Computed example of a mutant assay.
Amino acid sequence: MSQKNEIPLLILSFAITAGLIAGGFWWFTKNTGFNLNQSNSSNTNNPQVSTEKPSGKTFTSIKNVPTGLFNYGGSTSWAPIRLTVDSVITAVRPEFRLRYVETSKATPGSGTGIQSLIDGQLAFAQSSRPVLDQELSRAQQRGFSLNQIPVAIDGLAVAVNPSLNIPGLTLDQIKSIYTGKINNWSQVGGPNIPIKPYSRRITDGGTVELFVQDILGGQPFGSQVELVSTTTQALQKLAGSPGGIYYASAPEVVPQCSIRPLPLGRTQGNYTAPYQEPFVLPNECPGKRNKLNIEAFQSGKYPITRNLFVVVKQTGQIEQQAGVAYANLLLTEQGQELITQAGFVKIR
């Protein structure tokens, strides 16, 4: 064959090969969930927030769920979801096995989970607050970025002893109590009883970090704040302390029989309860229990709400696929209904 005839054939062969490669790449991205923009997100300084909407209504309808055993962990506020939702996920999708892991070197919490994720000990993490700048920096030093996917709405509830007669508190009053400027309930319209604030340590999790950052404005706790190890311990102390006050994730507080969740407001007298009215009295509990004020949480009328996040490593590896799959399962109609049963509020 002459050189003159070979040139058109070479051009045609090149065009066919390029078309096959392009078509293969399109098929790969469509069927694996790989996202080019996400894989390059380590060049940014902000956590990526997923806006992808999973298709289908049930766990069985979600595609690209990997096979294997995946370690996860983090926020203690997620405990009801781990108990209620994750067990159903593993039953419906047995190929997607989940193992909750607690590090022995630190108290469980959002920060501990995200650090373990960065260190390669977890496939994905559960967090009750957004990823921090320093966590992004540590991830980027390891060569990847972090994606935070909101899957539920939670609120912080402030609880007192059930005998305390007070209509509610403003956010400014809560700040003054925990920074030591207000130390008697008579200063906020209550009886002449010394205030005894309780809190977990700031290193114990996202709830405390969020409270210090958003409510206290970064100021330290006052010297009168008694530090406790767990919410269970705090609620026990609160039940026996007439002047006690404590804050925690609303699903951990609102249904309890031995304490009273307080209505809160941004301005004095304009309070919104974290529970559905009418309030269930302690002597009616546990036959009846207070339920979350879902409407106030969704509308933002209740003044202390937050998102719960699945935090995913942007590595393009199976751990990223596992984290995205977990979030997508929670965002199905089935997942959102189970999140409601766990005591949280649907995000969609």
Score class of each variant (00 low, 15 high):
residue 22 A to G: 12
residue 232 T to N: 13
residue 306 R to Q: 14
residue 280 V to Y: 07
residue 325 A to W: 03
residue 313 K to Y: 02
residue 278 P to F: 09
residue 338 L to N: 05
residue 312 V to R: 01
residue 229 S to M: 11
residue 189 G to L: 13
residue 121 Q to L: 08
residue 93 R to F: 11
residue 49 V to L: 09
residue 53 K to A: 10
residue 59 F to V: 13
residue 57 K to P: 00
residue 125 A to S: 13
residue 219 Q to D: 13
residue 322 A to E: 02
residue 123 A to S: 15
residue 160 V to I: 15
residue 138 R to E: 10
residue 152 A to S: 14
residue 311 V to E: 03
residue 2 S to R: 13
residue 211 F to H: 06
residue 147 N to P: 00
residue 34 F to D: 06
residue 4 K to R: 14
residue 261 P to Y: 03
residue 95 E to I: 01
residue 287 G to F: 13
residue 35 N to L: 03
residue 243 G to L: 04
residue 62 I to C: 04
residue 347 I to M: 08
residue 233 Q to M: 10
residue 285 C to L: 10
residue 145 S to N: 15
residue 195 I to K: 06
residue 277 E to R: 09
residue 68 G to V: 13
residue 41 S to P: 01
residue 222 G to F: 03
residue 68 G to F: 06
residue 159 A to Y: 04
residue 279 F to V: 04
residue 63 K to D: 10
residue 264 L to H: 07
residue 9 L to S: 12
residue 225 V to K: 01
residue 131 V to P: 00
residue 115 Q to T: 14
residue 52 E to Y: 14
residue 127 S to C: 11
residue 82 R to L: 07
residue 160 V to G: 08
residue 325 A to Y: 02
residue 68 G to R: 08
residue 195 I to Y: 06
residue 233 Q to P: 00
residue 265 G to Y: 07
residue 222 G to W: 03
residue 305 T to Q: 09
residue 316 G to N: 04
residue 221 F to S: 08
residue 114 I to K: 01
residue 299 S to M: 12
residue 323 G to A: 07
residue 313 K to R: 14
residue 105 K to V: 08
residue 140 Q to L: 10
residue 46 N to F: 10
residue 118 I to H: 00
residue 209 E to D: 11
residue 163 S to W: 03
residue 239 A to C: 06
residue 329 L to Y: 02
residue 178 Y to I: 03
residue 160 V to N: 03
residue 58 T to S: 14
residue 19 G to V: 14
residue 59 F to M: 09
residue 140 Q to W: 01
residue 85 V to W: 02
residue 164 L to E: 07
residue 74 G to E: 00
residue 245 I to E: 02
residue 252 E to Q: 13
residue 316 G to K: 03
residue 38 Q to F: 07
residue 4 K to L: 14
residue 326 Y to F: 15
residue 281 L to W: 11
residue 197 P to E: 09
residue 271 Y to H: 05
residue 91 A to E: 15
residue 46 N to E: 14
residue 306 R to I: 06
residue 201 R to S: 12
residue 148 Q to W: 04
residue 41 S to R: 01
residue 242 P to I: 10
residue 229 S to F: 09
residue 332 T to G: 09
residue 208 V to S: 08
residue 292 L to W: 00
residue 332 T to F: 06
residue 173 Q to T: 09
residue 43 N to S: 13
residue 27 W to R: 06
residue 199 S to R: 05
residue 83 L to V: 10
residue 212 V to D: 01
residue 19 G to S: 15
residue 147 N to F: 01
residue 110 S to N: 02
residue 310 V to Q: 07
residue 87 S to G: 14
residue 92 V to G: 00
residue 259 I to M: 09
